[in-house]
Design a protein around this nucleic acid. Structure first.
Lengths: 200, 200
DNA sequence: TTAACAAACTAACACTTGTTAGTTAACTCT
DNA sequence: AGAGTTAACTAACAAGTGTTAGTTTGTTAA
């Protein structure tokens, strides 16, 4: 008997086999990086042979591309609605913090590839880099406007951008260790630390 | 003629061939990660054949181990002298910021491996992880003492630790893009942002 | 019942990987 | 001049790489 009938609880939708592969691959990519994970590793984690993966996906590269591009587009979309919101710059920064937390909670493993394996993209690398640069520019714009309106201190905006973004991009390393933490509470606390510092 | 006599300016010390290999490897590891860099890549960058590398190093693994462990020990040593200094917690945090900036400026490429390739260590992985945990614990202790002495706001210390450390660990991505910036000025500005936030 | 499909399998290929063995040429020191 | 050392070379190997071709088997739709 080759096919197993998994019992599926009423609440869980059945994932396409392709999506299962992508999820398993994401987890392995997070642990060892794209280059160190072989198709045989992925297959073994699913209990099948490497060749069988090709009934569902076209290449290893396709898996990486899917993981990274869908996340990058999610960030782009999130940023574009933040730009449209009628809030001051501080509130917009808080929205950015929440955006990162929510996306990271939903796809912790994928965020590792986004951060560490984008250089292994082929066809879509330029597209990814464009999305990334645009995202950073939007972020910088919010900071610059905040400085002009005296909502944000008048310091080197690149240092502020780098500092905040580094923390947000590293969330994937940290969130899985703190499962008990509520996303909203985390957003509040983290915004507080990033915006107001820790000095008393 | 197989051997070239490089002209060495009086100011530059001649690096051992082994150290040259490690430097070249560090650069490649930063660009593509340890697993994606082959011995033939490293050799090509040096203008020699892969087999020739083995006159100077014992294995690819040895290169990675050297890069990571020497940096980790540098951090350990830096932290231990900060612990001994008679400063309040805010001043100690500023010293930690400077420690990261100085080490990163001196070995930007190596910092990439420290952050992203430590999981590919073999023999020395446990040792590395011990150093890392100890470092984080020392960092957390400084924050906790600061909270007790009311020098630091009374918020979740793990969030503060994570936030600051994420930024410091990402410096290697950012410092090479800002060559004009003076290390001391960067330390001052970054400490200011990390400790006092950006809110006006 | 049977045709079509989905998803697994075995076997194989061409290429790349880290590494070893043995050799050779140029410098250094006596 | 000769011995020793350093650092390059060529050639090769065994293991592992992503991927393809062709086949088999259970499930689904007509």
């Amino acid at each position: 008997m080759k096919h197993v009938n998994y019992y599926l609880a009423a609440s869980m939708k059945k994932l396409s086999r392709k999506q299962e592969i992508i999820n398993v691959a994401s987890k392995l990519f997070k642990e060892k990086g794209y280059s160190a994970v072989t198709m045989r590793d992925i297959a073994k984690s699913m209990g099948i042979k490497a060749a069988s993966l090709y009934n569902h996906i076209n290449s290893k590269q396709e898996i990486l591309t899917y993981i990274i591009i869908s996340l990058a587009e999610e960030f782009t979309q999130g940023m574009s609605s933040i730009k449209l919101s009628n809030k001051n710059s501080i509130e917009k920064l808080k929205q950015i913090v929440s955006l990162h937390i929510n996306i990271t909670i939903n796809n912790t493993n994928g965020m590792a590839s986004l951060n560490n394996d984008w250089m292994h993209l082929k066809d879509q690398k330029d597209y990814y880099l464009t999305l990334r640069v645009n995202y950073e520019n939007s972020f910088r714009n919010i900071i610059n406007k905040g400085i002009k309106k005296k909502e944000i201190i008048n310091l080197n905006p690149d240092i502020m951008l780098f500092s905040i973004l580094s923390t947000l991009r590293s969330l994937y390393l940290w969130i899985p260790k703190k499962e008990d933490l509520d996303p909203n509470e985390l957003a509040t606390s983290l915004s507080n630390v990033l915006l107001n510092g820790i000095n008393r």
